[in-house]
Simulated scan of single mutants.
Amino acid sequence: WPQVELTAARQRVYNAPMDIPVTLLYSILSSIAQSAMEPAPDPRLLNEPTAMVRLLPAEAKQGVMLPPAGDGFVVIDDQRWPLAPTAQIRSRQNLIVVPMQIQSPVEVLYLPNASGAINRVWMLTSSEASAPRPR
C-alpha cells in the first residue's frame, strides 16, 4: 500500500516507493521469452497484407512496370505510357506512393484514362498477381 503522509498544512502526500528496475527487467525478460516461444514467420508472407482485401477493378490490365524515370512517363510491358496529372500509384499496402519510390520492376494493375494516359496503378501482392486477368 502507498504510504500516506501529511504536510504541515495537513494535506496528503502520496510517496509510494516504486520498484522500477525490477518491473522493467520483468517486462523485458517476459517479452524476450514470449518472442522466443513464437514460431518464426514465413518469409514469403512478410510483404503480404494480412487482413486487407482490395477490390481491384475488373477492367484493369495486368503488367510489369519498370521504375519510372521521372519524366512523366511509365513503361509497362515494354510500352511507354504518359502519366496522367492526377495519377495515383498504390503500394501493396494500398498506400499512395510517389513514382520515384518504386526502385525495381513490379507486377501491377493499371487503368488508362480516356486520353490514354495512365490514371491508376496498383502494385500487386503475390496472391493478387497470381489471379488471372487480361494483359
Rank of each mutant, 00 (worst) to 15 (best):
Ser35Met: 06
Pro41Gln: 03
Ala114Pro: 01
Ile102Gly: 04
Leu6Ser: 08
Ile28His: 13
Leu24Ile: 07
Pro112Tyr: 04
Leu45Lys: 14
Gln62Thr: 00
Val4Tyr: 15
Asp77Cys: 05
Ser130Leu: 06
Asp77Trp: 06
Ala84His: 15
Ser115Gly: 06
Met123Tyr: 01
Ser27Asn: 13
Arg12Gly: 07
Val108Trp: 01
Pro68Asn: 04
Asp77Ala: 11
Ile102Phe: 04
Ala131Lys: 15
Val4Ser: 09
Thr7Leu: 05
Leu111Asn: 05
Asn113Ala: 06
Ser127Ala: 07
Pro105Phe: 11
Arg135Leu: 13
Ile118Asp: 04
Gln3Tyr: 14
Ser104Thr: 12
Leu55Pro: 01
Arg133Gly: 02
Ala131Ser: 08
Pro85His: 09
Pro2Tyr: 14
Ser30Tyr: 12
Leu95Asn: 14
Leu55Ala: 10
Arg120Ala: 03
Val75Ser: 07
Gln101Ala: 10
Ser91Lys: 08
Thr125Ile: 02
Asn15Asp: 11
Leu109Ile: 01
Pro134Thr: 10
Asn15Leu: 12
Pro82Gly: 06
Arg12Lys: 10
Met18Gly: 02
Arg135Phe: 08
Ala117Trp: 08
Ser104Gln: 14
Met52Thr: 11
Ala60Asn: 07
Pro17Phe: 07
Val121Ala: 06
Leu66Pro: 00
Asn119Glu: 14
Trp122Ile: 01
Ala60Pro: 06
Arg90Tyr: 15
Pro2Arg: 12
Val108Tyr: 02
Gln93Arg: 13
Thr7Gln: 05
Ala114Met: 10
Met37Ser: 10
Met52Ala: 12
Glu5Gln: 13
Asp78Gly: 00
Ala131Asp: 13
Glu59Met: 03
Ser31Asn: 09
Pro132Glu: 11
Glu38His: 09
Trp81Lys: 07
Ile76His: 03
Ala16Pro: 11
Ala9Met: 09
Pro17Ala: 05
Phe73Asp: 06
Leu83Ala: 06
Met123Ile: 12
Pro134Val: 09
Arg133Pro: 06
Glu48Pro: 01
Glu128Val: 04
Val64Cys: 01
Leu95Tyr: 12
Gly72Met: 10
Leu24Lys: 05
Glu5Asp: 11
Ala69Arg: 07
Pro57His: 04
Ala69Trp: 00
Val64Ser: 00
Ala87Ser: 15
Asp78Ser: 14
Arg120Glu: 10
Leu25Asp: 13
Glu5His: 10
Gln79Phe: 13
Pro21Leu: 03
Arg80Ala: 14
Gly72Asn: 02
Ala84Leu: 01
Ser91Ala: 10
Val74Arg: 05
Ser115Val: 13
Gly72Thr: 03
Met65Leu: 04
Gln11Lys: 13
Tyr14Asp: 08
Leu66Asn: 08
Leu95Thr: 09
Gln79Tyr: 14
Met123Trp: 04
Ser31Leu: 12
Ser27His: 10
Pro21Gln: 02
Arg10Thr: 00
Trp1Ala: 07
Pro41Thr: 05
Leu95Ala: 10
Ala84Pro: 02
Asp19Val: 04
Ser30Ile: 08
Tyr110Ile: 01
Ala131Ile: 10
Glu48Ala: 11
Pro43Val: 02
Thr50Arg: 14
Leu46Cys: 05
Thr125Tyr: 07
Ser104His: 15
Val98Tyr: 15
Ile118Gln: 00
Met18Asp: 06
Leu56Tyr: 14
Gln101Ser: 15
Pro49Leu: 05
Pro68Ile: 01
